[in-house]
Computed example of a mutant assay.
Amino acid sequence: MSRDRSAPSGGKLLDLDGILSDPAIRTVVCCGAGGVGKTTTAAALALRAAEKHGRRTVVLTIDPARRLAQSLGLTELDNVPRKVSGASGELHAMMLDMKRTFDEVVLTHTDPKRAEEIFANPFYQAMSSTFAGTQEYMAMEKLGQLRARDEWDLIIVDTPPSRSALDFLDAPARLGRFLDGRMLRMLLAPARAGGRSVFSLVSASFSIVGKTVTKILGTQLLADLSGFVSALDSMFGGFRERAEQTYRVLQDRETAFLLVAAPEPDAIREAAYFAGRLAADRMPLAGLVLNRVTTVSAPAIGSAGARAAADETSAPLSDLLLIHAELAEQAERQAEVASRFSTEFPEVPVATAAAQPADIHDIDGLRRIGDEIC
């Protein structure tokens, strides 16, 4: 039986095979709210790009739940691309290790002695592991590294499961501004008297301010922060510059953004907000992948007709008609929710994937998803 390839609410149909096979497209970014199937979608698209279109593909996940490794038949993923042996094409997969990526940045842009000082600093250790925005910043760093190596025909990024999908775009700039900010630079500015920093002079000259800052942040934290900034002196300017460079890559026509959503109000609202943001930032939105859509075997029979027919028949046929009616009602509700996005963004094409009876855990399952949405 052939699958209905029409888009929801009569909208435009998303040609994902056209995107995956296009040699001009080198990066696909899957984004959306958490829990909508971004990781599975990214893995299915990467597998299809490698197997069906012969592209040397790497999929980068930021999802710490390790679902990508499981679905690709790998025991683990780390910060280095690993070949997926179960795929017939050239497919590699990796999972972002944000601390290791931060360490790589430090090693690349400073000398070994200074790097050791940075690694030993408690402020750096906390920042590279838990600081707000570090994961998103390092995702951008890793994307930039993969693009610079020029080893891949296609890079597919599964964006972080953030509170808001917009964190992937906003956090790198915020962290870059922090690392390159004037407040941190003040701690480095040389003083003419005794080699003290501006912070030392300000603390000595304005004891009330100094005592207040020390009370709020703590003496040890200030010492750690000052040592961190001092060791990081040679790297200032690089953080923001690289974030801006990768940001420009995301704006380039070699990149295609795919929104991933479920037909639920919160997910659709997030997808619509993200679509507006991408348009405002002049980033290329290729389309929406609508996951976990309820399907019925006889779509011509609506919920009302099924219930009416159930009243006129006996079991077990009436029971089957009632089950069909419930599924049809759910499908109708989902179609109404999905239509809100299509009404607001009629020019954005849509692909759909039916709700699966179980989670996808293997290569064959990913192939089925790829066949369905493409």
Rank of each mutant, 00 (worst) to 15 (best):
V348C: 03
A358Y: 11
M283E: 12
A280P: 07
V202L: 14
L201R: 12
V296A: 06
N291G: 03
I156T: 02
S128F: 08
D22H: 05
L47C: 05
E336G: 10
P112R: 06
V260N: 02
L290Y: 05
T212N: 09
A50Q: 01
A69C: 09
A298M: 15
L217M: 14
T246E: 14
Q145A: 14
S164M: 10
V202K: 03
G18R: 07
F199T: 03
T41E: 05
V229H: 00
P190I: 07
T343S: 14
T27Q: 14
E336K: 10
R26F: 09
T39H: 01
T27E: 15
R240E: 15
L201K: 10
A173I: 09
T130D: 14
L146I: 06
V157A: 05
V348F: 02
R100V: 07
E347W: 06
L91G: 00
A46S: 15
G237I: 09
G11I: 01
F274M: 15
L179A: 07
L258E: 00
E326S: 13
T159K: 04
V59H: 00
A262W: 00
A338P: 06
I156G: 01
A46Y: 00
S339T: 04
D364P: 04
S164E: 13
L366I: 03
L290H: 05
A335F: 04
V213H: 06
V209L: 15
P81M: 08
T294Q: 10
L143Q: 07
I118Y: 02
S226Y: 02
I25Y: 06
A338Q: 08
L74R: 06
E329K: 08
H324Q: 08
D371A: 07
L107A: 14
A120K: 15
G32R: 02
H324L: 12
D22T: 04
E104V: 10
S303Q: 08
P349W: 05
A310S: 10
A50V: 00
T352D: 04
I323Y: 11
K52H: 14
N79I: 03
R48F: 05
F228P: 00
L143R: 05
F119W: 12
S234Y: 09
I208Q: 14
S71T: 03
V209P: 03
G133P: 09
M235G: 10
A331D: 07
T108K: 14
G35I: 04
M95T: 08
I155M: 07
M98E: 11
I155C: 07
